[in-house]
């Protein structure tokens, strides 16, 4: 039963800590504009060549046009394919993308395991004593789970260990890599390796569905030593990730949407002006000490 509780705890921690991180960034004071073009929410060709409403005469008298589709498409390109890395550093992209694609496949695998578990709890087994169920939907779930889990594990395992070795052996990377960054990559690899050991004893991932059934019914997870180690490592990495810079899935959203792509102009009497009015009414309780900012601080230093 302890394993069941631990799994719940790790899932809650992953989601909760990630949301808390997002909450912290979302609640920071409104910052000055720091956009960088191209901004994909600029409509039409501007979103591609890097133009903006500043190209229009008296832009403040024109309706503000925003291309949400342009923004979403660019966001998806970045999320699904790591476009910037592909365009600017392809050799690194192969390794990094393997790792990230592996995670996406394993995300799909997790969902499918949960779906399979629900089906089995509903009386539609995914596998029977004779093998894979003859039911079309059940066999589809079985094979897609098998492929996504297998491909995901291989890609994540390859990506994490390949990046580990690249960081260790390539001097340009090694000199900027901290011990924690090596640890992070190795930690991911260790989770995958322990999973591969478990998988080798149950290629159909039936153990995964059993775990989800235990979670859904809040009953003990039946686990041998290898599965216990895998569950502990996987749970630990889920608790660990949001507390490290591996939580860049949160940071990246803010970096693009709230900094680089945030070019909403402050037009008089607009909603934005109201937000600004509120923001600049804040009186900071501390100040910088240079003489041109706070002459009194310099005099105090002299005393």
């Amino acid at each position: 039963m302890l394993l069941t509780v631990f799994i719940y705890l790790s899932i809650v921690a992953f989601i909760g800590l990630s949301l808390y991180k997002a909450y912290q960034f979302a609640n920071m004071p409104m910052h000055g504009r720091w956009e960088l073009y191209p901004v994909p929410k600029e409509p039409g060709e501007r979103g591609h060549y890097g133009g903006s409403y500043y190209e229009d005469l008296e832009y403040w008298n024109k309706p503000r046009e925003v291309s949400h589709s342009g923004e979403i498409i660019d966001m998806l390109k970045e999320m699904l394919f790591i476009k910037n890395l592909f365009v600017n550093q392809k050799r690194q992209w192969w390794l990094s993308y393997a790792l990230h694609l592996g995670i996406y496949f394993l995300g799909l695998w997790t969902v499918l395991l949960a779906v399979g578990a629900i089906m089995e709890l509903s009386g539609l087994p995914i596998t029977t004593a004779e093998g894979v169920s003859s039911n079309g939907l059940a066999s589809l779930i079985y094979y897609v789970t098998l492929i996504s889990g297998g491909v995901g594990a291989i890609l994540l395992g390859f990506g994490s260990i390949a990046l580990f070795f690249k960081r260790s052996l390539n001097n340009s990377f090694a000199k900027y890599t901290t011990p924690q960054e090596y640890f992070n990559l190795f930690f991911l690899f260790a989770v995958v390796a322990s999973g591969l050991v478990v998988w080798s004893g149950d290629p159909g991932f039936n153990y995964g569905r059993e775990i989800f059934k235990a979670l859904f019914t809040f009953s003990p997870v039946a686990a041998d030593a290898a599965l216990t180690i895998h569950i502990l490592l996987l749970g630990a990495v889920m608790i660990y990730i949001p507390q490290t810079k591996m939580s860049h899935y949160v940071g990246k959203y803010f970096a693009f949407h709230k900094v680089l792509w945030d070019n909403d102009p402050n037009i008089r009497n607009s909603q934005m002006e109201g937000v600004i009015k509120q923001a600049i009414s804040y009186k900071p309780k501390a100040s910088w000490s240079a003489p041109h900012i706070n002459p009194a601080a310099g005099q105090q230093d002299k005393k």
Binding site: G32, L85, Q92, S96, K245, V259, Y282
Partner: peptide, 19 residues
């Protein structure tokens, strides 16, 4: 206040990919 969010994002998340 004016730069806290962009600063912390750039401070915390660099993957050092050298791109």
């Amino acid at each position: 206040r004016n730069y806290l969010q962009p600063f912390l994002l750039s401070f915390e998340y660099c993957a050092k990919c050298n791109t």
